[in-house]
Nucleic acid binder design. Sequence first.
DNA 1: ACCACTATTGACAGCGCTACCAAGCGATTG
DNA 2: CAATCGCTTGGTAGCGCTGTCAATAGTGGT
Lengths: 342, 342
Amino acid sequence: MGRKRTKPGKIRLTEVAELAGVSPITASRFFRNPEALSLTKRVRVESAAKELGYVPNLAARALASQRTEVIGVLIPSLTNNVFSDVLRGIYDAVDGSRYSVQLANTRYSILQEEKLLRLFLAQKPAGLIVTGIDQTPESRSIMESVDCPIVQLMETGPDPVDMMIGFSHSDACRAAISHLFAQGCRRIGFLGARMDPRVQRRFDGYVAIMKEASLYDPRLVVTTPLPTSVTLGGALLADLLTKAPDTDAVFCANDDLALGVLFECRRRHISVPEQMAISGFNDLEFMASAVPTLTSVRTNRYEMGRDAATMVIEAIEGRRPEQRVVDLGFTVMERQSSMRRT
Amino acid sequence: MGRKRTKPGKIRLTEVAELAGVSPITASRFFRNPEALSLTKRVRVESAAKELGYVPNLAARALASQRTEVIGVLIPSLTNNVFSDVLRGIYDAVDGSRYSVQLANTRYSILQEEKLLRLFLAQKPAGLIVTGIDQTPESRSIMESVDCPIVQLMETGPDPVDMMIGFSHSDACRAAISHLFAQGCRRIGFLGARMDPRVQRRFDGYVAIMKEASLYDPRLVVTTPLPTSVTLGGALLADLLTKAPDTDAVFCANDDLALGVLFECRRRHISVPEQMAISGFNDLEFMASAVPTLTSVRTNRYEMGRDAATMVIEAIEGRRPEQRVVDLGFTVMERQSSMRRT
DNA sequence: ACCACTATTGACAGCGCTACCAAGCGATTG
DNA sequence: CAATCGCTTGGTAGCGCTGTCAATAGTGGT
């Protein structure tokens, strides 16, 4: 004999089936596809399960069925407010479904992402949500050869692996710069920290529109690979003003930087927006209540997470969405920090 | 016969064992306890596994061993910066170990927490990290009857279920109020949002020290069950000034509120700290770079998460920590927003 | 040389559940 | 009235791994 037998107190599917007077396989079906049972058996199994307090053993289920009910989520950071909003959306959509979330943090490394991807896929997740469209070629081909639904998050672009939900960072940045143009700003600086692919694309949008207006000047650009922070926003503005003292506006690649810029302007007695217009990006909650209120680009982060999870779940259950690529758009929230003409 | 046989391409432990020329059980031991093997077999199994690209099937392992390598984490919110720092600590400590994190969000509901706890424990996690010390009696007895290590996070208190790591919110609040006393403040308001148990204990500390100084006045207290935000900080200050126009300082139960108060003071041309001293709580990054810089109580959130996860892992592996209750303390970061006498 | 003892290794029998196939059954059809 | 169909139900045989125990090999003491 192998080992000591199962602890007698343990409720297995067999016990439920016995109490309900059906075969184990029928009881099993009840939990996976109740409609397949006749009404009488369905009721009997249900009450038996409730009476015994049965909880399915997920490990056994996964082993026998070669599938799990786990949705893997790969995000680059847990700290960034942007991702916590996205995550909240994902968890809200997944809670209440039969699925659960397995979260992993790539720390902005696509090599780490590739590693985690392999790890996830070895456990046969039901679905996958990944951040961005800049996977390694290996990651890409791993994802393409896998048979679970995948959503790429945060950006839109050509050539989705499977599904995609996000918006155009480049266009969003262009819209913010256009707004600054309309306010009469010409020497518009670009501040960026942690140049991840999303920030890079915002930067591309900035360069393009500035060049189109023949206003591009490399001295107006200050970026750093350091992680973003409010303090850093102040430091980057200081750099910018050293390189280009005639700067009349700054586009900050995220809102933390914008807040830091606002504080730095106060410190230096630079009036906002008269001497310096400011635009942030993401429209975090505090932007609307700063003094002056801060212009930003609203992105639909919560919705992005929620809809991504919903798309994955629908696809798992065989209901593929009509459109594989969803653009959630953005809105330039024009506020005091950039309103020169009113 | 039951079903179609395993897809031939699939690498199982058996294949690894075969290639290495050992029995499957020996190969199995290699992955769980390499030291138990002789050097030769260890090397042979290792290279065989690498050559075949073997990845263990966790479902099978969990089923056979009746254990998992999952650490369940229950937190009340994904949005709050405080928890994202804690989570980052947890993930940092768990990444690189054999364990993985299963995260669930209680949404500040202890009933939800109880439900999730049952769900987790049914899957036999290797360890558990829960937030706070205010579980329902049922949750409490469930946790006590379970045999995996458990860490309670965020607070210290008597009577841990198992282990505990945090600090005294009441003492931390008292320390901040003492500092405001030392600066000559007497009419010190308390602003609180989302009155979760931690905030409640900060409030208890406030009431106690104010009463000791015979300065307690209910008109100085403004709280709301609404979730916290910067905007809300401004609104709460407005309420406070209506009820108690002679307020000369505010203690904000978190930093978002403090930032909102700062902005509201600017809006109303109330000078900080001369007319109004401000203290926040948690010491988020932006506090040090606001203008004026904002006083806050630094809490060691990242360390809390990291150490909690480390304690759980150590305990799982049989190395119980000497002290079951760890107090990580706090530091009042005295900054411009409260420095009246310099 | 013999024995107790430890360090390695292997055989066996499941862990709890589900995929696959087939059988039972009443209803429908030619 | 037999053949057919669709729906429900059950039997069988694993899914890939590990706990338990026994067997074997190696060690040093007397």
